[in-house]
């Protein structure tokens, strides 16, 4: 079970968190059908670091971006999604 260092709550067990999806599969509401097919159905699943969206669902409920090595499970960074997000112009 991973130990995830939530920016709000500190190090917490994985059981408190929910995995949502790889960041590359996040689909804006106004995406085209071609983009939707590409992001949801043609995935790379690369061996290495995966940028993922998680939620501290049984904690502060914040959305987090977690960079995790899919082989070693090493967590390279945990960041609040909202802090990384840029509003559409």
């Amino acid at each position: 079970m991973l130990l995830i260092n939530c920016p709000h709550c500190g190090p917490r067990a994985q059981a408190e968190f929910g995995f949502e999806r790889p960041v590359e599969t996040i689909l804006p509401v106004d995406a085209s059908t071609a983009t939707m097919v590409e992001r949801l159905y043609t995935r790379t699943n690369a061996r290495g670091v995966s940028a993922e969206l998680w939620r501290h669902s049984h904690g502060c409920r914040a959305w987090l971006r977690i960079d995790r090595h899919v082989v070693t499970h090493e967590i390279l960074c945990v960041a609040l999604w909202v802090a990384l997000w840029q509003a559409p112009q």
Partner: peptide
């Protein structure tokens, strides 16, 4: 609940 939170927190934090 999860879907609303996803749309709110990830797609439309603004």
């Amino acid at each position: 609940e999860a879907h609303l939170a996803y749309v709110r927190g990830v797609l439309a934090p603004h």
